[in-house]
Design a protein around this nucleic acid. Structure first.
Lengths: 252, 252
DNA sequence: TTAAACCCTGACGTGACGTTAATGTCAAGG
DNA sequence: CCTTGACATTAACGTCACGTCAGGGTTTAA
């Protein structure tokens, strides 16, 4: 059993916040002493953690109460979606950072920025339009086929394939400054294209969908962010250029 | 010249917000028509962008006004620090994501979590306490010496040193799952120790300070986060173990 | 037994707008 | 010229998540 002060220290909130949460019925103490003191148990801790996650995503306390108050409330599912939401926040912040960079260059006269560009990272919108596309790409059949191919390799082979992948992404990060259209980057995209065939043999258009998936699908995005916060986004643009070019030269 | 509605669409704020900013003298229109209409010019856009960046970092509007109102206000410098602050936010979110993962495992019974762990990503604290130490480490003399040594290398040599560094950090990320005390990690720390001598020859204790610097100094931290969001923190712990062990075996 | 450190309940304050109301302005089409 | 609809204005009260007193009781360690 913890007192308000103890909880407040643990969770980084003030006692007043706990009073407030009690008042509005969001987090009631497990037990109230005869002296009126609030005592919280371990379940309260877990519930408070959930509340803080939702609050982190700017949800009104009233809505939070409604959600975690439902008797069929699914803790695990909620945590999964917290992760997705937090990843989106990270993506947004990364776009903001990109905008800061652009603005710095803009002020130094190195590039020009339209009015829209100045703010495009702030306004949400224009996200998720690729969601359907990605959904379609990662359908059950594709995933099954891809898994099968992967499992057919020896452990050593798998190691070396993963290593090759890491090298490609590392090279890509190194080449980022030269821009998505640069020869250097496009050569790496080609290596990446070849590399993908260890998993499945994508058609040219599917490459774009795959690169979109790197951005939209949290499973991938998180891993890419570890390498470089702008890598997924950069890859998407680079692959678009690559596919556009390949089509031109390939179809004549 | 833009009207309130136009600005609001561009920047993703409501007209009411612009009214409010006018009221409190944070962002006044470039011109007010005879009809009382507010008209904003391009300078206003840039100023609004700055305001939104500060707001993104949860700064009170009153403070924002004071800062950008100063006549020696440095736009570029501000943007630089926006970047640092945004990167800190990203790092925090990554820690939160890590906590979500841990909690998921915890609920599935795969690991146990202390009360502190449940919340450690929320509470800020335990950042920056090494600030002084780091300050001391990066004093002018050290930095000068380090720069001098670095400049004495040929361009090719520098390239290869940087590459070696990248390899070490990549290997470190790969070895993270085995824990800070594992043989694998400690061997890599030793390689890192050797590697550092290209820059200067740190005394054993200074290694700890250096690794702390990776966490505390935003210049380094941002770069480490690009490789892996927990790398800087992991290095700090690993180096502490390394130094403790070296002292034991070295001094007998 | 006394001080320090904790607890309680009101109740009002605050910051950044949202919302509503009542009213004026402008551009386009009939 | 007149209407209509989308814009603009000011004024003023509402909201949300607490912060901040004020006034008073309780617990613990010296």
């Amino acid at each position: 059993m913890f007192t308000v002060k103890q909880i407040s220290k643990l969770a980084g909130v003030t006692p007043r916040t706990l009073h407030h949460y009690d008042e509005i019925g969001l987090l009631k103490p497990s037990r109230v002493g005869d002296n009126g003191y609030r005592y919280y148990g371990k379940e309260s801790l877990l519930r408070l953690q959930q509340i803080l996650f939702y609050r982190e995503l700017d949800m009104p306390l009233d809505d939070i109460r409604k959600i975690i108050g439902r008797r069929d409330y699914d803790k695990l599912g909620a945590l999964q979606s917290h992760k997705v939401a937090l990843n989106k926040k990270v993506a947004r912040l990364n776009r903001l950072i990109q905008t800061v960079d652009n603005t710095i260059n803009h002020l130094q006269g190195d590039n020009i920025m339209s009015e829209r560009e100045l703010f495009k990272a702030f306004s949400e919108e224009e996200q998720e339009q690729y969601a359907l596309e990605a959904e379609q790409l990662y359908d059950a059949a594709t995933v099954r086929a891809s898994n099968k191919k992967w499992k057919s390799y020896s452990a050593a082979k798998r190691e070396s394939i993963l290593a090759e992948g890491n090298t490609i992404y590392a090279d890509m990060v190194a080449a980022m400054p030269s821009g998505v259209r640069s020869r250097a980057v496009q050569v790496i995209v080609e290596r990446w294209h070849k590399h993908m065939e260890y998993f499945w043999t994508p058609k040219l258009e599917q490459l774009v969908g795959l690169a979109n998936g790197y951005n939209d699908d949290p499973r991938f995005k998180a891993n890419f962010d570890k390498i470089h916060p702008q890598l997924a986004e950069f890859m998407r643009e680079a692959v678009q250029v690559y596919v556009a070019n390949s089509r031109k030269s390939g179809s004549k």
